[in-house]
């Protein structure tokens, strides 16, 4: 079974416990303005153009399948997004690492094989496989196929999701999932809609349902100054999570601007936010610890 991914990261140490292999799927139904993986939003392949590596040799233009080379009399020597049909031929031809085709279909069995390569590292570190995104549950059947097979091999499965999906369509995934990395953004729906493009109603409803499943949960919250870094928001989140019996911890991720560079390579607009101070982060962490919820700043 095929799934669309952006990349696979081995020796991943920040997506669940231990040493993990993290698969980033492509395609998301949220549009968080601070997104740090903007290349995973689209459900189609995209070109990343690392302009600083380009030496204007013109190879990409010659290789281009839209016959850009013929029509322009070879005057254009660099990648031009306006003509791009995302065939990836230019990336194949580039010898300077200036072009990369993001997004490829990959067989679930290949993912299993790659995951198995580091099996011993998982065992020794309490790690495993994480499928992240994008929104992994948009390709639920594919994820389920992988998790079923990796579970058989004794691999710990973690699923990173925002849960903005129809519960009934995805709920069987949790039978083969050991840990859910649940991404929550903010409790106020107006704010949520403004910054992510979608309502949080379904998300929170699903989260409640998830809490009754037989699966560990780590809640991850990106903390963005002026968006969700308020005492009120974190306290509300803590109250919401209070009844989650298999909640392992809450991870607070201070905003960073790595996503901006990637947006530039994708030719996309992006918005800058600010990172909360360390003091602020500690104060927000206390909102959880006060309610006896373990919280860490990552």
């Amino acid at each position: 079974m095929l799934g669309l991914i952006s990349r696979i990261q081995r020796f991943s140490v920040s997506d669940g416990p231990g040493i993990r292999t993290t698969v980033f799927v492509k395609g998301c139904n949220l549009r968080c303005m601070w997104c740090h993986n903007p290349e995973t939003q689209n459900t189609k392949p995209e070109m990343m153009f690392y302009e600083q590596n380009c030496v204007s040799c013109g190879k990409c233009v010659k290789a281009c399948s839209t016959s850009l080379g013929d029509t322009t009399d070879n005057k254009i020597k660099r990648f031009d997004r306006n003509y791009c049909d995302i065939s990836g031929a230019c990336a194949d031809s580039c010898l300077h690492g200036a072009l990369e085709l993001i997004g490829r279909d990959i067989d679930s069995d290949e993912i299993v094989d790659i995951a198995l390569k580091d099996l011993k590292y998982y065992k020794n570190s309490g790690g495993g496989l994480t499928i992240s995104g994008g929104e992994a549950l948009l390709q639920k059947e594919w994820v389920k196929d992988i998790f079923t097979k990796t579970k058989e091999k004794g691999i710990h499965n973690a699923l990173d999701t925002a849960l903005n999906v129809k519960w009934d369509e995805v709920k069987d995934i949790f039978q083969v999932t050991d840990l859910v990395l649940l991404d929550l953004k903010c409790m106020d729906d107006t704010v949520h809609q403004y910054y992510t493009g979608v309502s949080n109603e379904q998300i929170l409803d699903n989260a409640q349902k998830l809490s009754r499943e037989d699966v560990d949960i780590i809640v991850r919250i990106p903390v963005i100054m002026g968006v969700n870094d308020t005492h009120a928001n974190m306290s509300a989140t803590a109250t919401f999570l209070n009844s989650f019996r298999r909640l392992k911890q809450v991870e607070l991720l201070p905003y960073h601007s790595f996503g901006m560079e990637k947006s530039r390579y994708l030719g996309k607009e992006s918005r800058v936010f600010e990172t909360p101070t360390n003091e602020r982060m500690t104060a927000l962490k206390d909102c959880f610890t006060k309610k006896n919820i373990k919280a860490i700043i990552v």
Partner: peptide, 11 residues
């Protein structure tokens, strides 16, 4: 981090 490092080396 320590857990990760010791596991990587041990493996």
């Amino acid at each position: 981090g320590l857990e990760v490092l010791q596991a990587a080396f041990k493996t």
